[in-house]
Design a protein around this nucleic acid. Structure first.
Length: 529
RNA sequence: GCGGGUAUAGCUUAAUGGUAAAGCUCCAGCCUUCCAAGCUGGCUAUGCGGGUUCGAUUCCCGCUACCCGCUCCA
């Protein structure tokens, strides 16, 4: 991995502008905002919903409709606990963590080297002159050959944390209630400092629930989970799809859907949220094709990002090294985007081998084999998984499209223009339709005609309020690629030649061309497809 | 989970222990022949909960959310 400190520029001010625009124009709102917000959850407003839908539609059209080797699936979110036991999410998933009480360093509880020695335990500390006192149990481990006064110094530093303003030196504290005990092979102390650790806590990232109205809270059979990834429903339904869809290896099963992880620390706007949507394909193949297909899928996915307006120069491909990959994966590429808050993962293209199908075969005791008619051989297919974060991609699209442009008008006056340069394919609104003036009924009527013509074909927005320039800018800010203006020439005031023509203003160049109304649908449909 | 910061209208900011101000946006109207013009009018705010106080948006405590740095991210 590249050094994040040198490679990344963290542009907090830019991110704040983007967040503000998203709220102001109705792309993204905080979930339950009027109740103070829900940590790590976000709602898409009218424009955000359109944007996200366009992204998902493009993906689905490209892979499910556009290819004959991929079929779709829409699995349930509530997940049988056995599915996640088989996949390893229950049990092997959570890491017990504990913190050093003195240094606050966080440690994996299962990786602490057991230690033996004498434990010096205290009940608190006081300082008579200032009236300071604190009652808290604390302990330090003294290993063989170590000085017990050093341990007392450590304890004083610990209690010193509770002093205000450092008016009293921790050294002057009186330790209270000192006792000693011998321990062997204890993992309750930080090997580096000897300081007592907090109790180990499990961080299980899955949302658990109980099924059935009469389910008792403690009934282990009633436990179900919100799926932590969409992939498992594909593996679990592998056999059903195989038997009903007449597919042959290699083939893929695609799914777009919600997944849930109880993240310890949601961060960076919608980037790491607790509820998120994935766009995943499990592409099943013969074992010998796995590595090659992983590379091919990486290329395919990069060209998808290019298609939606994220050029590959702005993407980073991380070939995840041994030891950092998930244990089941033989090869993983992370596709990362250069967000204002740093370079972060959009998608993982992972070669998962036959791990998942094998696990489900073991746990369910149901066959997961594929029978190859040509070679007359039974095999458990391997799988390549391009798994993209839908919300992350939406955020990347917005970041990529956002620009604050300084433009100079004819009088030489400089002004700022905020614009979202969405590709017409993903833009929430495809065209704004404007009568040049609101108080001329003929213009308004004609503009309404144009609006009615286009409305059934694509999302368009009619606007008659304010000066024409203002209306253009409003659409710039939400990324509408075209502005269509109905003026007096449309009505035939300058001769029949220009009658029933309108100006089409292009968002990025702000240039205009005249076009016949009857040509508008074909022109626009070509651009947005 | 730890440490630091922030929270006033849709946005950006101001002020105050005693009627919360402005710009932009938005809405309505007038005007306006292509890039945020002008005029008139209008809607809208102290995150939540306690405490101190005659009175708290302001001071104190707690909570929540967001941002930054760690940590975490199967």
């Amino acid at each position: 991995m590249s050094d994040p400190k040198t490679a990344e520029k963290h542009d907090t001010a830019l991110m704040e502008k983007i967040v503000s625009l998203c709220k102001r124009r109705g792309f993204i709102f905080q979930s339950a905002e009027i109740y103070g917000g829900l940590n790590g959850c976000w709602d898409y407003g009218p424009l955000g919903a359109e944007l996200k839908r366009n992204l998902k539609d493009l993906w689905w059209r490209r892979y499910v409709h556009g290819r004959d080797d991929i079929v779709g699936l829409d699995g349930s979110i509530l997940t049988h606990q056995d599915v996640l036991k088989a996949s390893g999410h229950v049990g092997g998933f959570s890491d017990p963590m504990c913190d050093d009480l003195l240094t606050k360093e966080r440690l994996r509880a299962d990786q602490i080297t057991p230690q033996s020695g004498t434990v010096l335990r205290f009940s608190g500390a006081t300082h008579e002159e200032s009236g300071f006192s604190v009652e808290r149990s604390y302990a330090v481990l003294i290993r063989e050959g170590e000085d017990e006064n050093k341990a007392r110094k450590t304890a004083k530093q610990y209690y010193g944390q509770f002093l205000k303003d450092g008016q009293v030196s921790p050294k002057k504290l009186e330790l209270q209630g000192e006792t000693t005990e011998e321990v062997t092979d204890s993992t309750r102390f930080n090997p580096a400092t000897g300081s007592l650790l907090t109790e180990a806590r499990e961080f299980n990232l899955m949302f658990q629930t109980t099924m059935g109205a009469s389910a008792e809270d403690n009934d282990p059979k009633a436990v179900a989970y919100l799926r932590p990834e969409t992939a498992q429903s594909i593996f679990v339904q592998f056999k059903n799809v195989l038997e009903t869809s007449r597919v042959k290896l290699p083939f893929g099963i695609a799914q777009i859907g919600k997944a849930f992880r109880n993240e310890i620390n949601p961060r960076n706007y919608t980037f790491r949220s607790r509820e998120f949507e994935q766009m995943e394909i499990e592409y099943f193949c013969k074992p010998e094709d796995g590595l090659r297909l992983t590379d091919e899928w990486l290329e395919d996915r990069l060209s998808f990002y290019e298609e939606i307006g994220i050029p590959r120069e702005h993407l980073h491909i991380l070939d995840v090294p041994d030891g950092e990959r998930a244990h089941y994966s033989k090869k993983t590429y992370d596709i990362e985007y250069d967000f204002p808050f740093g370079i972060q993962e959009l998608e993982g293209v992972a070669y998962r081998t036959d791990y998942d199908l094998t696990k489900h075969k073991e746990h369910s005791k149901k066959p997961m084999e594929y029978f190859d008619e040509e070679t007359k051989e039974k095999l458990i297919p391997h799988v390549v998984e391009p798994s993209a974060g839908c919300d992350r991609t939406v955020l990347a699209l917005i970041c990529e499209a956002y620009e604050e442009e300084t433009i100079t008008d004819e009088k030489g006056k400089e002004e700022k223009r905020e614009v979202l340069r969405f590709s017409p394919k993903i833009a929430p609104i495809k065209a704004g339709i404007f009568p040049l003036l609101k108080n001329k009924p003929e213009l308004v009527a004609k503009a309404r005609e144009v609006y009615d013509l286009l409305k059934p074909l694509m999302p368009v927005f009619y606007d008659e309020g304010g000066a024409i320039g203002r209306r253009y800018r409003r659409q710039d800010e939400i990324g509408t690629p075209y502005g269509i203006t109905i003026d007096f020439e449309t009505l035939g005031e300058n001769g029949d030649e220009l009658k029933d023509t309108v100006t089409v203003r292009e968002r990025d160049s702000m240039s205009q061309e005249r076009m016949k109304i009857e040509d508008l649908p074909a022109f626009l449909l070509r651009k947005i497809r």
